[in-house]
């Protein structure tokens, strides 16, 4: 568990990082952010980057900025930073609720939100949040900038549409209006493990009925996504236990869960059903 040889680069600004990416694009170049996923993969020699570009010195990426109804989280914002950040609207409360479900304190102190998005683990809580809230991912290369909608970001398990010469500089999230309801539930075998399945739900209640419903599922399929079939059940309806159960069932029916040696697809599907129901109840409380 010693990594294969590599060259470490420490750029002093984002432009230099982007240039380095272009220069070594054909040579298994990787960005090093918190290192909480990349370093273990290198130790197992599952990742063998020839060049590592360490962005930890780029203070300009460590900011959370808010303007025009949007929140921008820079590439060096760590999971734990969310706890003390002042973030507008219901979005702040939502992120604060989700964050403690990620790993354990020491990992959260190093790991970054954008690192999670770039790594694109199917179970990642931030990937689920980005998908559910229709985040916009901000990419930059030596030649320019690009904005990528969350729904176009994930291309499979641990794979994204980011190009080899691109750096993810940040992610933009909408400010959810005050009063927006949300619920988050996940199941993992132990505290801090990657979730076997997770559900994030968001809706508003206007004149007693549900509007703007979003239901996102993570961990079940190869990447998190919104489940329109479940959202449709909620739209314009009065919240009730029966409705939430139906929404859960609709989500479960719409999923095509992964199956592996240790987890059956049907188990994930059943969990999704119950987690959605539970998250909706939590949101309605």
């Amino acid at each position: 568990m010693k990594p294969a040889p590599f060259t470490l680069h420490r750029p002093s600004d984002v432009a230099e990082a982007a240039q380095l990416l272009t220069r070594f694009a054909d040579d298994e170049v990787r960005i090093l952010a918190g290192g909480q996923s990349l370093v273990p993969m290198m130790a197992f020699r599952l990742a063998r980057p020839g060049h590592l570009i360490d962005i930890n010195g780029l203070g300009e990426l460590a900011q959370i900025t808010q303007s025009d109804g949007a929140i921008e989280i820079g590439a060096l914002v760590r999971h734990n930073d969310i706890a003390s950040a002042e973030i507008e609207g219901a979005t702040g409360a939502l992120l604060k609720k989700v964050m403690p479900n990620i790993a354990h304190h020491p990992i959260r102190a190093r790991g970054t939100i954008c690192g999670s998005l770039a790594h694109a683990d199917p179970s990642s809580e931030w990937c689920l949040s980005a998908a559910t809230l229709d985040a916009v991912l901000l990419a930059r290369s030596a030649t320019g900038k690009r904005e990528i909608a969350a729904r176009d970001w994930f291309t499979g398990a641990m794979s994204t549409s980011l190009q080899a010469d691109e750096l993810l500089t940040g992610v933009r999230l909408p400010v959810l209006p005050e009063g927006t309801r949300f619920g988050f539930q996940e199941f993992s075998r132990r505290k801090g493990d990657f979730a076997i399945c997770a559900a994030l739900v968001v809706f508003e209640i206007h004149y007693g009925v549900i509007e703007e419903a979003r239901i996102g599922i993570g961990g079940a399929e190869d990447h998190p996504r919104r489940i329109a079939e479940g959202e449709a059940v909620l739209k314009g309806q009065r919240p009730s236990a029966e409705l939430f159960a139906r929404a859960g069932a609709a989500v479960a029916a719409a999923l095509d869960p992964m199956e592996d040696h240790s987890t059956k697809a049907a188990y994930r599907r059943d969990l999704a059903c119950d987690l959605v129901e539970g998250a909706l109840q939590e949101a309605a409380r």
């Binding site: 075998r189 132990r190 040696h261 240790s262």
Partner: peptide, 22 residues
């Protein structure tokens, strides 16, 4: 755990779950 080819599936602490404080 092993698969049908005898490949071990529990070779990290993410796959071999030891109980923690929690």
């Amino acid at each position: 755990l092993y698969d049908d080819n005898g490949e071990p599936l529990s070779v990290t602490f993410a796959d071999y779950l030891m109980p923690t404080m929690a």
